[in-house]
Amino acid sequence: MPTTHQVLVNHEGQYALYPATRETPDGWTPAGFDGTEDECAAFVDAHWPDIRPLSLRGA
């Protein structure tokens, strides 16, 4: 059975995949999506087209 992952986002608007069974690390917030690694990667691809941190996107 594949590991369930969750999508996390930090204060810079950067996304990460993280095992859903583990406690969310400091500095990260659940983005409200979980699934297989491939499903989570597809979610990130659809929601994070500009991978620069927020602090650089506004510059």
Rank of each mutant, 00 (worst) to 15 (best):
N10I: 03
E37W: 14
L56G: 01
F43A: 06
R22C: 06
E23Y: 03
F43N: 08
L17N: 14
T36V: 09
S55E: 09
A42K: 12
A59P: 09
L17Y: 05
D50M: 04
T4S: 13
P49E: 09
Y18C: 10
P49M: 09
P53N: 06
A31T: 06
G27P: 04
T29F: 11
A59N: 11
A41D: 13
H5N: 12
W48N: 15
A16F: 00
S55V: 05
D38A: 15
A20G: 08
P53A: 05
L56Y: 13
P53Y: 06
Y18D: 07
D38K: 14
T29L: 08
L17G: 08
G32T: 04
G58M: 11
I51N: 10
D38W: 07
A41Q: 15
Y15W: 10
S55M: 02
A20N: 13
G35C: 10
D34L: 11
G58H: 14
G27C: 04
R22F: 14
A20D: 14
N10Y: 00
A20T: 04
L54V: 02
A42M: 06
G13M: 02
E12I: 00
H5G: 01
P2C: 02
I51M: 13
I51T: 15
H5A: 08
H11A: 15
W48F: 13
F33I: 05
W48H: 14
C40G: 10
E37A: 15
A42L: 12
L56V: 12
A46W: 02
G58S: 13
L56P: 04
A20L: 05
T21V: 11
V9G: 01
H47N: 15
D34Y: 08
P25C: 06
G58P: 02
C40R: 10
G58A: 12
E37I: 10
G35W: 11
V9M: 15
Q6V: 13
V9H: 02
A41E: 13
E23D: 13
L8P: 04
H47S: 09
G13Y: 03
T36P: 08
N10E: 02
P25H: 08
L8D: 01
A20S: 15
N10T: 02
T29H: 10
